[in-house]
Design a protein around this nucleic acid. Sequence first.
DNA 1: GCTCGCAATGTTATACAATCACACTGAGGG
DNA 2: CCCTCAGTGTGATTGTATAACATTGCGAGC
Lengths: 175, 175
Amino acid sequence: MIWNNMTSEATPNPVCDDALVGFHKHDHKNCVETALTTAEARCKQEGLRLTPVRRKVLEMLLQEHRALGAYAILDALREEGFGSQPPVAYRALDFLVKNGFVHKIERLNAFVACSHPGADHSPAFMICRKCDAVAEAQSAPAKGILGAAARATGFEIERTVVEAEGLCPSCTEKA
Amino acid sequence: MIWNNMTSEATPNPVCDDALVGFHKHDHKNCVETALTTAEARCKQEGLRLTPVRRKVLEMLLQEHRALGAYAILDALREEGFGSQPPVAYRALDFLVKNGFVHKIERLNAFVACSHPGADHSPAFMICRKCDAVAEAQSAPAKGILGAAARATGFEIERTVVEAEGLCPSCTEKA
DNA sequence: GCTCGCAATGTTATACAATCACACTGAGGG
DNA sequence: CCCTCAGTGTGATTGTATAACATTGCGAGC
């Protein structure tokens, strides 16, 4: 039911290695811990401060393994005794997004933990319109027709949002 | 080919100023009227109802020639004597988006008139992070690496959001 | 004509998303 | 020791979007 990490050949080093996590069991606890440890190491290495709030938000997103809205995150922070006003969540999310630990899904106004942290990548997402599952893949939009258009006109691409909406395998079956 | 319009938020009263557009001069009044006529024709042909509210919203987006937020549109509707509550604007926008007259820019939570109405296309956008100008181009995301990932996992792509963020030529020069 | 059904509109209220402004704290660095 | 500054806590506000329900207007069919 939870179809949260639809990995594929196109996604080489995902946090949760098992394909189609939602369909099969996997050692989720372990995958969360690994990701957290990795994040801590990277922060230490790069002089970033993975403070309690930030760590908690990252942990939650890894744990849930799906896209969460800012206010869902905020609710959880409140229950953990952190500040309960929107800026608390947004500041943590800003940090995590800026440093590549988390991605924002523009289409859902929601956030999801990165599946290939550390890798320098421009992510693409597949979003199921029925169950809201989100899977991360890679993209190379600047190489296609869009890149050609940008070069032709002098537009400098810095970042791209690529989000595909459709039906996940699980929801396709049901239909 | 692609760079149909690069409009700028800095133009409160849009006259298709080619200093700002920079790439493509055109007769804006004429282009608005043509687009409206075309839209009306298409609606008639397909049995769609381009009602006064919907027509007004489309006209406004064509006129402004840039991305507008829902509430900016709502304000304008109010001044024209239409209903002034959010659903009025959102319903009209839903209709226009669903039928391809208008696109939503997810990154900006804003709406822009389609540059190639009628054409069956999956649009891509270039958004200047400095002046919020938006240009529409074509994309073919399902053909690249993302399409491969989708096929590999059984994901059925129905729609794609492709939005590039960066600097438009005009803002690049200034920097 | 009537009324049933249906699409569109109007309206109230509310949920969710994001930012502003300002105060406070606590860990370095001079 | 004091200062700075990043991070955090808090209240308030603005912007975006939808739920729920009442109303209107119009065509299909009796």
